[in-house]
Design a protein around this nucleic acid. Structure first.
Lengths: 118, 118
DNA sequence: GTTTGACTTGGAGTCGACTCTAACTCCTAC
DNA sequence: GTAGGAGTTAGAGTCGACTCCAAGTCAAAC
């Protein structure tokens, strides 16, 4: 079973523009095959990957890192470990952003408490 | 006590370029006063705000929202509540990014566990 | 057999957030 | 008094991540 770019767009929430753009950026690694008329045909496994890539994006991972993530799957024996490391690094970044926000939240709630008890 | 743009740059880690850029973007709200030669002089309270703005940035908040945060401080009676809301909204976003990463981390660690137990 | 609609490409345009340049003005130190 | 260094401005350039455009191809429906 294979899907057109329009179908994949519907399935993943990425626009067709973005799908072509990601392909140009080398984010897929397995090249997307074309039918006799030159149109892209996506397989299930490619769609699975696109969904993961999309999650990585919404999670704030920059494209070059997502590319590294994709490239890691080349080497079957080290893929998961490399990807784990990329994810952990990114998790650290997001966690520190969260810590920043929470620090500011503390300051603000303190301010409000003081204001109320005045 | 007031400080030059170069000193503020040192103190906050933002470049002088960025400080001028943020000012153009209306991120300060209290306008930065100039000395007799037209140079910016930052007060302590302005520096305090710049530090907060910087934190908001590294926490991933976009500039328009930081502007709203700054503008909120106009109205002394509602400032803290408005800012609290902005922070909470942003916290939600960052949390959901973190959840995405953690979901992927789960998938990967599962994959590794399976691989090891094969 | 032509219209319609989904696709193709290369390349241009947009937007957010900086980052840099050019030409200029001050102040301080020698 | 002039050289150096830190400022000033308006505006241009960069980079990441899309987003759109023009010109064209193809298959299916009428």
């Amino acid at each position: 079973m294979s899907f057109s770019i329009g179908q994949v767009s519907e399935m993943t929430g990425l626009t067709t523009h973005t799908l072509r753009f990601y392909e140009k950026q080398g984010l897929f690694l397995e090249p997307i095959p074309r039918d006799s008329a030159g149109r892209r045909r996506y397989s299930d496994t490619q769609i699975d990957w696109i969904r993961i890539g999309g999650k990585l994006r919404t999670a704030g991972m920059p494209l070059p890192e997502i590319r590294r993530y994709a490239e890691a799957s080349r080497d079957r024996s080290t893929a998961a470990e490399t990807q784990l490391k990329l994810l952990q690094d990114h998790e650290k970044r997001v966690r520190s952003q969260l810590a920043d926000v929470q620090h500011l939240l503390d300051l603000i709630t303190d301010k409000i408490t003081h204001h109320e008890s005045r």
